[in-house]
Amino acid sequence: MGSYITVMLTQYTSEAYKLELARRHAIQSMSGVGKCYDNARMESFFATLKKEKLYRIDTTKLKREEVKKIVWRFIVYYNRRRITTMNPKGYPPAIYRELFETGLSKPAA
C-alpha cells in the first residue's frame, strides 16, 4: 500500500502533470507539495451526497436540470440543517461557521 501511495503522489506532483493541467487551464485540487489529504473534506461530502441522496433515486430517468435541483437542495440541507460530527455540538457547517465567526463557538479540535 505504501508504495502505491508513493507512486500516486509522485504522479500527481510531477512537473509533466502540472504542465498538462496548465495547458488545459485546469486547477489542481491537491497542493503542489503532495498532500493527498487536501481534498478529504470534499471527498467526504461527495460520498455523503451519493449515499444519502443520489444512490436512492434513479437519476437516469431525470433531466439534467432536475438532478441539479436535487443536488442544490441537498447542499442547502447539508450546510444548514444536517447534523455533523465535525464539531463538538453537531452543528451543520454553515451554522457552526456563523457561530464561530460571531465568537459564540470555539473551533473544533
Results as ranks from 00 to 15, higher is better:
C36H: 05
L49Y: 08
Q11D: 15
H25C: 07
I57H: 00
D58I: 03
A22T: 10
D58R: 06
S44L: 06
D38G: 05
G34N: 02
S14C: 14
N79R: 08
T6H: 08
P92W: 08
M1F: 13
Q28A: 12
L99W: 02
I70F: 06
G2P: 13
P93C: 04
H25I: 09
R73D: 14
P92R: 08
Y37H: 06
E20S: 11
K53E: 05
S3R: 14
P93E: 04
G2I: 12
V7A: 15
Q11Y: 11
D58C: 04
A94D: 14
E43D: 12
T84K: 12
P88Q: 11
P88L: 07
K18L: 10
T59R: 03
A94H: 11
I27D: 01
Y91R: 10
R64Q: 08
E52V: 08
S105T: 01
T10K: 14
I27A: 05
I5D: 15
S14P: 15
A22Q: 13
K51E: 08
R24G: 01
E65C: 05
Q28M: 07
K18F: 07
A94E: 14
V33K: 04
Y37S: 11
T6N: 15
L19F: 01
W72I: 09
N79P: 12
R64V: 02
V7F: 14
Y37M: 05
E52K: 06
G32N: 10
A108Y: 00
Y77Q: 07
K35R: 04
P107M: 00
L19A: 13
A16Y: 05
N79M: 10
G2Y: 12
A16E: 14
K50M: 10
L9K: 15
R23M: 07
F46R: 00
M8L: 15
I5W: 15
E65K: 09
A16T: 15
L49D: 04
